[in-house]
Simulated assay, not measured.
Amino acid sequence: MTAPAAGLALIRLLQLASPTLPVGAYTYSQGLEWAVETGVIRDEASAGRWIGDLLAHGIGRYEAPLVAALIAAWNAGDGPEITRLNAEFLASRESAELRAETAQMGFSLARLVRDLRDPALTEVARVLAGLPELAFPTGWAGIAAAWQIDPEAAVGAYLWSWAENQVMAALKAVPLGQASGQRLLASLGAGIPATAAAALALPESRWSNFTPAFAIACTRHETQYSRLFRS
């Protein structure tokens, strides 16, 4: 890849990982709000433990390697594999809110693909339109592949975007100050390159999203009386 092309890929990656991406990610906490309600998360340290553990043992060991596999499938033009991985992710959602979240964000991302009017995304738009229900990682990986973003950089940015959204939720729900948020992001970010590299090398037989506390938090949030977030 030439220097100008590599530079453009970086800019496109920043766009794809930006919190301004109009998919509604900021409206979800993925159970973090329930953890705050019950006192499991109550300050900067406990927020860091919750988000960091989930990043290392859940998102990093299932969602991240799945995104890497999806990017490979998109690059290979392997429609059946894209469809299979999309269905796998939808089936992995352990609560109604989590499934609704990825489907809503996937729907919004598919609409964005059309609205961008980028010829490089024409095939992505066609494939996404053929899926009966779209998981967010499937569309995100398709855009990353079409924009020729390095897979390891893409997975790292995906993890960063997830961590940033979790920290933003903690800032609102605990609440925490801006300096606390930046300390959390600095700490979480330091581990993301290694997590991304491990995700690319992790065979599917070793993927795991066994995070019982996360699943319980997401399920309990569905009946939480007072809440800011949709999950």
Rank of each mutant, 00 (worst) to 15 (best):
A69G: 13
A194E: 10
S95V: 01
A186K: 14
K172G: 05
L14P: 00
S205H: 10
V36T: 09
F89T: 10
A170D: 01
L32Q: 11
F107M: 08
D43F: 07
A199D: 06
F136W: 07
R227W: 08
T38F: 09
L185K: 12
A135D: 05
V167G: 09
E164S: 10
R114Q: 14
A153M: 12
P19W: 01
F107K: 13
L228W: 08
Q30P: 04
A213C: 11
Q104P: 02
R117D: 15
N75S: 15
Y62V: 02
S231C: 08
G24Q: 06
L109I: 02
A197Y: 03
Q224T: 13
Q148I: 05
R126Y: 01
T211S: 12
H221C: 11
S231Q: 12
W140C: 00
R227F: 10
E94H: 07
A76K: 02
Q104K: 11
Q224R: 12
R117T: 11
P137A: 04
I192W: 07
W34C: 14
L128G: 01
G191S: 07
L134H: 01
A9K: 00
A198C: 03
V23K: 01
A64L: 11
G60S: 10
L21E: 00
L128H: 00
V23C: 11
P175H: 04
P151Y: 08
E164C: 01
I71G: 11
T27R: 15
I11G: 06
F89P: 02
D118F: 06
G189T: 02
A47K: 09
L188A: 11
A87Y: 02
G191M: 03
P212W: 07
L13C: 10
T195F: 03
Q148D: 14
E123R: 11
R93I: 06
G52R: 13
A69R: 13
S161I: 00
V36K: 11
G52L: 12
S29D: 14
V40I: 14
S92E: 02
V127L: 11
T138F: 03
A197V: 12
G156Y: 01
K172A: 15
F89A: 09
L121Y: 05
I82H: 00
G31N: 06
T219M: 11
D150Y: 03
S108W: 04
S180I: 03
L8P: 04
G60P: 05
